[in-house]
Design a protein around this nucleic acid. Structure first.
Lengths: 236, 236
DNA sequence: CGCTATCTTGACTTTATTCAAGGCTTGTGG
DNA sequence: CCACAAGCCTTGAATAAAGTCAAGATAGCG
């Protein structure tokens, strides 16, 4: 099933925003649409880096396996995010689907050629990698210094922002925002460098404080975004 | 004092390795040699990103100021490292000299033009940024999960490797490696997300275990590099 | 020589982990 | 439709880790 990818899911937010239609069509011809179910890997740490991809829908995790054999999540990918290491060596990370996902996958060689031919695309990729680095550094601060509550609050805040959720169904003044977490408690624990129990306790505490609501399953409602952001910043 | 920078300190390890001499000279003409003393800032978080630079000697830190007003170090720069955000918006980080440093500084616009004219340079910069991202992620794992001992051991291990120190003065079989830390205990604490006291205790513990020696001041001698690496990996 | 910074060490407190048990969901088969 | 099993989530009590507060010890520096 090698259906071509009609627009690579990149038209709006991604690498190709600056390309004209002809170029876009050219790039689209190189990409292959692919789906993964929850739990499937796109890239494994020791693979030679043969592919690049754009995530179109769903969420994925970037993880390493620690010396102790634990799964350590070092990044999350949301729609529009780029996967791969053009012009570079091995990646040393696994990239695994957290939900069912849709991707536009390129052979690395094809993608590199496209980058070489389309200068602006390369610049965009550079910008984006720099932005990703900034995000990693922000996260570094969170993980290095923040309390358990701040980590959990920061994570919820980040997810909400990255998913670009907005609850416009009713024109009410309520600022509540609802969404489903792409991760289990265990995965959140891996991500935040905490234990499952601690994550659970902090979620409970945020609910007790009226900041969020947990209707059940993986659903989360943010009742007070300002308080959540404040909890994320609280370094004490 | 706007002396031109003769080779930008980049000939060996850096962006310009792939350029021929003519191109190198062209780039060098754009750069200005600059020195900062310990504690001086090159970039402030809220500055518009007007410059790019290559670090030639010394060490610098990349830091943010937390909501609580603390200084949170999110990265270190060693000779050969690149500073700046070509083609991108603001950086949101301070870049401050940890020791006296020498830099080759470019006006951002000049540097962007050079990147545009020298394709290979741009690819190298991309690669390097991707590598930096990987390093940030490795660090993320360390900060997220590691114990205090592992953080300190990992940091020493990283410094040793990044400084490329080798103790060849005498042909002895001893694998001991000696160097001076570029950071105070307080800065190490910021960097590792620990307190000064904890850093101090862990250093003492590593010394008690015969893994390192602390002759005084900021000097460190690594007595048993293997044990140090093991301590850094110990997630328990 | 004395002053100030920085670093080390100790006693106590706070925070998160560990271990252990119980509850809620979900899916399956009777 | 209900019972039951499996997985995930929550909660509690005990333990271990790092932080805080408070003295001293060293090292630079004038």
């Amino acid at each position: 099933m090698t259906r071509r990818c009609s627009d690579c899911g990149v038209r709006d937010r991604s690498l190709c925003g600056s390309l004209n239609d002809t170029e876009l069509v050219h790039l689209a011809r190189l990409g292959v649409q692919r789906r993964l179910v929850r739990g499937e890997s796109l890239v494994r740490a020791d693979d030679p880096p043969l592919i690049c991809a754009n995530l179109q829908s769903g969420a994925m995790k970037v993880s390493s396996v620690t010396a102790g054999g634990d799964d350590a999540i070092v990044g999350l990918l949301y729609p529009g995010d780029f996967i791969g290491r053009p012009f570079a060596g091995s990646d040393h990370h696994d990239v695994v689907a957290l939900t069912d996902v849709e991707l536009c996958v390129f052979q690395r060689a094809d993608f590199e050629r496209a980058l070489t031919e389309h200068r602006e695309m390369e610049q965009k990729l550079l910008q984006r990698t720099l932005a990703e680095l900034d995000r990693a550094r922000r996260w570094l601060m969170l993980l290095g210094r923040a309390t358990a509550t701040a980590r959990v609050a920061g994570f919820l805040d980040d997810v909400q922002r990255r998913l670009g959720v907005n609850d416009c169904q009713r024109g009410m003044a309520t600022e509540s925002v609802a969404f489903d977490l792409p991760l289990s408690r265990g995965e959140m624990a891996d991500l935040l460098g905490l234990t499952i129990e601690t994550v659970s306790r902090q979620m409970t505490r945020l609910r007790a404080g009226g900041i969020i609501d947990l209707p059940g399953g993986r659903a989360v409602v943010i009742r007070d975004a300002a308080a959540l952001a404040e909890a994320a910043d609280a370094f004490a």
